[in-house]
Amino acid sequence: MSGSGPGGTAGMDESVAHNARVWNYWLGGKDYYAVDRAVGDHVTSVYPAIREVARADRAFLGRAVRYLAGEAGVRQFLDIGTGLPTADNTHEIAQRVAPESRIVYVDNDPLVLTHARALLTSSPEGATDYLHADVRDPDAILRAAAETLDFTRPVAIMMLGVLNFVPDTGRARSAVRRLLDAVPSGSHLAVTHPTLELGGEANAEAMRFWNENATPPITARTRDEVARFFGGTELLEPGIVSCALWRPDPGTGAPAEVAQFGAVGRKP
Rank of each mutant, 00 (worst) to 15 (best):
Y105D: 02
A202N: 08
I218S: 06
A34W: 02
L245A: 13
T152P: 05
E100Q: 14
T121I: 10
R171G: 13
Y47D: 01
V106I: 01
D88N: 12
G73W: 09
R143D: 15
S187C: 10
T44K: 02
P250V: 14
P248T: 12
N19S: 14
A72P: 05
A64M: 07
W23R: 02
S4W: 13
A256T: 15
A17C: 03
A182K: 09
E237Q: 14
A259M: 02
G28P: 04
Y47A: 06
V162E: 05
L84G: 07
L142V: 11
W26K: 07
G29K: 08
W210N: 01
T192C: 03
A140G: 15
L163Q: 01
T114E: 11
N211Q: 03
R102Y: 09
A145G: 05
P238R: 09
D107Q: 06
G239A: 11
Q95R: 09
N108V: 12
Y130T: 10
S15D: 15
V53Y: 00
F261P: 05
L78Y: 03
M158K: 03
D109E: 07
W26E: 01
L180Q: 10
P99G: 12
R96Y: 04
Y67I: 01
A182P: 09
R75Y: 06
D88L: 02
N211R: 06
P248D: 11
R171M: 11
G186S: 11
A59L: 13
I93P: 00
S242R: 08
P250F: 13
N213P: 05
S45W: 03
T222E: 10
L78N: 03
G83T: 04
E197K: 12
P85G: 03
L61Q: 03
D79A: 02
M159D: 01
G11I: 01
G40D: 01
K30D: 14
S122D: 13
A116L: 02
F229I: 04
V53F: 00
L119F: 07
Y33D: 08
G170M: 02
R178P: 02
C243I: 07
L179A: 13
L189P: 06
G265I: 08
V22L: 07
F209D: 08
P48M: 03
P85E: 04
L236K: 07
G262D: 07
A34I: 04
V176D: 08
T219Y: 01
G3C: 11
V104Y: 02
R143S: 15
V258N: 06
A254R: 15
T121V: 13
A145L: 09
R102C: 04
G170V: 05
I240H: 10
S45K: 14
P85L: 04
V226I: 13
S2H: 14
V241A: 08
F77H: 06
A34E: 15
H193T: 00
A202S: 15
P255H: 07
D13V: 04
L27E: 01
